[in-house]
C-alpha cells in the first residue's frame, strides 16, 4: 500500500536516513524503533511527502508520489510528533479545517468531523477550544485529525509522547480498532514496550540505518540472552561489586537503576542460583525478586552495545 524504497536523506554531512526500505501492509502495524536522532522522523517525513528524499522513492499503491499536490497524498493520514492543532479554535473547527484541505465540505465534512471526534471519545468537547484540553485529549484529537479523510494508510510519529497511562491506553485501543478496520500503519517510537504491544513487524533504526527487522520472534532470535532477573535491592548506593558480577559465567549484562538490579542471563534456571549465591556472599540484600523474557531493549543493546534511552 505504501512503500519506501532505498530512501536517503542528508543534512550537510549528517546522514539522517541511509537506504531505508519499508513496506506497509493493510491490517498491520509496522513499528519503527530507535533512539532519538535515529532517523525515524526523517523517514516519516519522506513517506508523508513533506520532504523529497535525496535518492530512493516513495510508492503509493505502486505509483511514485509526485509533487505536493499529488492526489495520492489523500491516501495517507499523518499524526505528527508535535500536537499539530490550532489551540485558538474549537476541536470541531480544527477538524473541519483539516477536512477542507482534503476537499471535504458540507454534510460530508460535518459527518466526518462527528465520526472522528466520536472515535477518539471527544464528541462532547466538539465546541470547546483546544487550549482548554489536557495533554492526553490533545493527543487523541491529534489522531482524529489524521482520520478525517478516512485514509487507508496512517503514519504515526511517536503519538503518545508526554501522555498519561490512561490516555496512552485509549490511543492503543484506537489503534487496535483501526488495525481491525484494515488500515496500514507505521508507528515510530523509542518505547520498546509500545512496539512489543502494538506492532506486527518491527524495524530497528540507529544513525539513519535499519539495523534489524522482522517480527518480535525473529528479533528475539538474535538475542544472546533470553531472560532478565530483576532484584529490588534493600539498600541503595555502593555498587562497586557490579563489574565483578559481570564476570560471572552466563551473565550478559548487569545494571542498576533506582534500586533495581537488572541482570540478563543466557539461561535463567542455571544462571539465577549462581547470581543469588554470589550476591549473598557479597552481603547484598534484596527485598523482592522477579524474572522476565528479554525483549527489544536487549535486542537493541545486543546490536548497538547501548540502551535505547542512552543514545
Amino acid at each position: 500500500m505504501l512503500e519506501g524504497c532505498g530512501l536517503n536523506k542528508s543534512y550537510g554531512t549528517l546522514k539522517a536516513a541511509e537506504g531505508i526500505s519499508l513496506s506497509l501492509v493493510p491490517g498491520q502495524i509496522l513499528g519503527l524503533l530507535g533512539p532519538n536522532g535515529a532517523g525515524k522522523t526523517t523517514t516519516v517525513s519522506m513517506l508523508a511527502g513533506l520532504m523529497a528524499p535525496d535518492s530512493g522513492e516513495v510508492l503509493v499503491d505502486g505509483r511514485p508520489m509526485k509533487g505536493d499536490s499529488d492526489p495520492a497524498k489523500a491516501m495517507i493520514g499523518l499524526v505528527p510528533q508535535e500536537l499539530a492543532l490550532v489551540d485558538e479554535l474549537s476541536a470541531g473547527d480544527n477538524l473541519a479545517f483539516f477536512g477542507a484541505l482534503y476537499g471535504m465540505r458540507g454534510k460530508k465534512l460535518r459527518e466526518a468531523v462527528e465520526k472522528a471526534l466520536g472515535f477518539v471519545g471527544l464528541e462532547e468537547r466538539s465546541k470547546d477550544r483546544v487550549s482548554s484540553f489536557s495533554g492526553g485529549m490533545k493527543r487523541r484529537l491529534n489522531l482524529a485529525a489524521s482520520l478525517l479523510h478516512d485514509p487507508p494508510v496512517l503514519l504515526l510519529d511517536e503519538p503518545t509522547v508526554g501522555v498519561d497511562p490512561q490516555s496512552r491506553n485509549a490511543i492503543f485501543d484506537n489503534l487496535g480498532a483501526l488495525k481491525e478496520q484494515g488500515k496500514a500503519m507505521l508507528y515510530t517510537t523509542h518505547y520498546m514496550e509500545e512496539a512489543e504491544r502494538l506492532c506486527d513487524r518491527i524495524q530497528i533504526m540507529d544513525h539513519g540505518k535499519t539495523i534489524a527487522e522482522g517480527t518480535l520472534r525473529d528479533l528475539s532470535a538474535l538475542l544472546p540472552a533470553t531472560s532478565r532477573l530483576l532484584l529490588e535491592l534493600k539498600e541503595r548506593g555502593g555498587r562497586e561489586w557490579l563489574p565483578e558480577l559481570l564476570k560471572l559465567p552466563g551473565v550478559q549484562s548487569a545494571s542498576e537503576e533506582e534500586g533495581t538490579l537488572s541482570v540478563t542471563l543466557r539461561d535463567l534456571p542455571t544462571g539465577a542460583p549462581e547470581v543469588l549465591a554470589w550476591l549473598s556472599s557479597k552481603g547484598v540484600a534484596y527485598t523482592h525478586m522477579s524474572s522476565e523474557r528479554a525483549g527489544l531493549e536487549e535486542v537493541f543493546l545486543a546490536l548497538t552495545g547501548k540502551g535505547l534511552r542512552d543514545s
Binding site: L50, D68, A74, P80
Partner: peptide
Amino acid sequence: RGLWKRLRSAPVSRFT
C-alpha cells in the same frame, strides 16, 4: 507547533 507538517501532508500545492 508542527501544524505546517499537517498542512503540507495534505494534497495541497505550496502556491495554494
